[in-house]
């Protein structure tokens, strides 16, 4: 087993059973179909895919909420199919979900962040230390006494992230954490994630369908029909505009514009990620 790898999955397959009106199994649908995923510690990984591509199913495997029908998955060296490691896996790989309201358990911010450490059976004093540190890391310490109902979407999602950090995971899996947020909230959450990756060296696995969010990732995977169909650095991925579009992904406007200009004969580099880069490249012509 490779010590630098936090996630080692090979040949992962998972099927959902579809039931007919009488409750009998009618069909099987492959949500994951032979996925290989290897993630090194401290990396920022992004998994892209449109709805129904299997990316959420993959996310749930990383936290052992689902276990693969075929193939093996090791999280921080623990086999996810072995029930005795369940708590250890969930401590190693925390998970943040899409809907901020449906993942906050406590009725006060600090109590929610303490929920994970409470489940781990830590002594009271240590729970408080962790809660304080986690809330400070996401910039929500001042709101610790508030009811979650009084927070904005972005703030709730930061509290949810704090709840995961308080368990001191090696890796955080975020399953479309910004899908229900406004642009301001989205920025807040992405900023928080990036800081955690850089300062705390926590491995981040960001699952999303917004391509703009993945430009700073170390590695990007694109999923379609339960398979990983593309992988590489953001620049490598973004230079293949036609292929991305064939997987129903929306390419960022700057990338698309650069690609179209290039097609018309302008001498621009491949895989332009942001407006600033495009402006620079155009100035150099």
């Amino acid at each position: 087993m490779d010590r630098d790898k936090i996630i080692e999955g090979s040949g992962l397959s998972y099927h959902y059973t579809i039931y007919d009106d009488e409750g009998k199994p009618a069909a099987e649908q492959a949500a994951l179909d032979g996925v290989d995923l290897h993630v090194e510690k401290g990396q920022f990984i992004a998994i892209l895919g449109h709805n129904g591509s299997g990316k959420s199913t993959l996310a749930r495997h990383l936290n052992a909420l689902l276990t693969p029908d075929e193939g093996t998955l090791y999280v921080n060296g623990y086999d996810t199919r072995d029930a005795q490691y369940l708590l250890k896996i969930r401590q190693s790989a925390g998970m943040v979900f899409q809907n901020p309201d449906n993942q906050i358990i406590g009725s006060v911010v600090e109590e929610d962040v303490g929920f994970g450490p409470e489940n781990m059976g830590l002594p009271t004093k240590m729970i408080w230390e962790r809660v304080e540190k986690a809330l400070k890391a996401v910039g929500m310490w001042k709101r610790r006494g508030d009811s979650p109902a009084r927070l904005s979407g972005g703030q709730k999602q930061r509290v949810a992230i704090a709840g995961v950090i308080a368990m001191r995971p090696r890796c955080i899996v975020l399953d479309e954490p910004t899908a229900m947020l406004d642009p301001g909230g989205r920025k807040e959450v992405l900023q928080t994630i990036r800081e955690l990756n850089e300062k705390e060296k926590i491995t981040i696995i960001l699952i999303t369908h917004y391509m703009e969010e993945v430009t700073s990732a170390d590695q990007v995977f694109v999923m379609d029909h339960g398979k990983i169909v593309m992988s590489g650095s953001p620049r490598q991925i973004f230079s293949k505009v036609e292929e991305l579009q064939s997987y129903r992904m929306d390419v960022p406007q700057a990338t698309l514009l650069a690609w179209k200009l290039k097609q018309r004969g302008l001498n621009l580099p491949d895989g332009i990620l942001s407006v600033e880069e495009l402006v620079d490249a155009l100035n150099q012509l």
């Binding site: 998970m95 993942q103 600090e110 409470e118 009271t124 729970i127």
Partner: peptide, 26 residues
Amino acid sequence: RRANDLALAMEARGYHGGDGRTKMKP
């Protein structure tokens, strides 16, 4: 739907009933 989501979120944060659980505010 919310109940289902919440159950997943609780499990993901290591909830496994009251055994071996400690209190933040005992």
